[in-house]
């Protein structure tokens, strides 16, 4: 059994200092930047961050400004894991050959769901299989937000996006969400986890644990998007919490192949509670909502989450 290590007992244990700093241009209530700020506090300054193209890159680096107090590199959209592989290998070779002082430098890729589940999946799979010592974080806002809310493999069933339009005959996205954490876990890497900024302590402990582990680690973070989900900015954390409490986005860790749920949900709320707050689901019929509920029930059972609240 993997050791149960708690790095931060409360949020007060996090450093005051920020390594992802203010001044970035994200929307108020952006789940991505809230999550990144927390993750960066947890992992500290001794790292190199690679971010592919997407909202995070765009809001944090409008030349000549930067929100990154750590070394940071954006190369392209589909290759964060491959760039991270090169950074990790480069550091390793330079340190082994005595050209760079030996010390542990965390290599962290922080990507969107499009850059992870779709266009970047091959590079991610390659890097996980090769076993580079790095952390890959997927910020899952469930669509290509940077280019204007287009559907991704990670967009949930029924959601409206600009390329899964709701029309006279089409009801939004027709397919279920791709389970990327399961794909990552299928590589038999040492650590896979899901997290969300509504459970910040869970998030920072997972981030810290993930970077400390030798070898590849994968962290999948649900990050609500105010314009993309058609939600008010003051509700993004509440909605993230509901994603967990309904069982739609369970929080768990997979260590050495064993999955355990980190935030227990003894009584799951009905998915309606989550869906009804978001404009992207406004068109769903009761029948569609029940279809989603059934699916969540089935998935929750597999994970051993609690029964649904009645």
């Amino acid at each position: 059994m993997a050791e149960k290590k708690v790095f931060f007992k409360s949020l007060k244990d996090l450093p005051k200092e920020d390594f992802f700093v203010q001044g970035h241009r994200a929307c108020p209530g952006c789940g991505e930047t809230i999550a990144v700020r927390l993750i960066m506090k947890a992992v500290g300054p001794n790292c190199i961050v690679i971010t592919p193209t997407g909202c995070l890159e765009v809001v944090s680096s409008p030349y000549p400004y930067t929100s990154w107090a750590v070394p940071w590199y954006h190369v392209a959209f589909e290759n964060a894991a491959a760039v991270a592989s090169g950074v990790e290998a480069g550091l390793k070779a330079l340190m082994r050959k005595g050209k760079l002082e030996k010390k542990r430098i965390h290599v962290i890729a922080i990507a969107g769901d499009g850059g992870t589940a779709d266009i970047g999946l091959q590079a991610l799979s390659g890097a996980l299989e090769r076993g580079h010592d790095f952390l890959y974080v997927c910020l899952d806002n469930e669509a290509y937000m940077n280019t204007g809310i287009q559907r991704s493999g990670s967009t949930p069933y029924g959601a409206w996006t600009t390329t899964s339009a709701v029309g006279k005959i089409m009801p939004g996205k027709l397919q279920w969400k791709k389970n990327v954490p399961a794909i990552a876990a299928a590589h038999d890497i040492p650590y896979v986890a899901t997290a969300c900024p509504a459970y910040p302590l869970d998030l920072v402990n997972k981030a810290k644990k993930a970077v400390e582990i030798d070898g590849p680690a994968y962290l999948h973070v649900l990050t609500p998007c105010v314009p993309g989900w058609r939600i008010p900015s003051n509700l993004s954390i509440k909605i993230a919490r509901l994603a967990v409490q309904t069982g739609i986005f369970p929080l768990y860790e997979v260590e050495d192949g064993r999955l355990h749920v980190t935030v227990k949900v003894p009584k799951r709320k009905h998915v309606k509670e989550y869906l009804k707050l978001q404009g992207r689901f406004a068109h769903l019929t009761d029948g569609e909502i029940e279809k989603i509920q059934k699916r969540v029930d089935m998935e929750s059972e597999k994970l051993g989450l609690g029964p649904r609240e009645t």
């Binding site: 190369v75 760039v83 090169g86």
Partner: peptide, 25 residues
């Protein structure tokens, strides 16, 4: 004495070269 990265594509080959070169290798 080199790190030999068996990338999964040429796109990743050049991406990894870019990352490694950016740290000074």
């Amino acid at each position: 004495d080199a790190e030999y990265i068996n990338v999964e594509s040429e796109h990743s080959a050049m991406s990894a070269c870019i990352g490694a070169s950016a740290v000074g290798a």
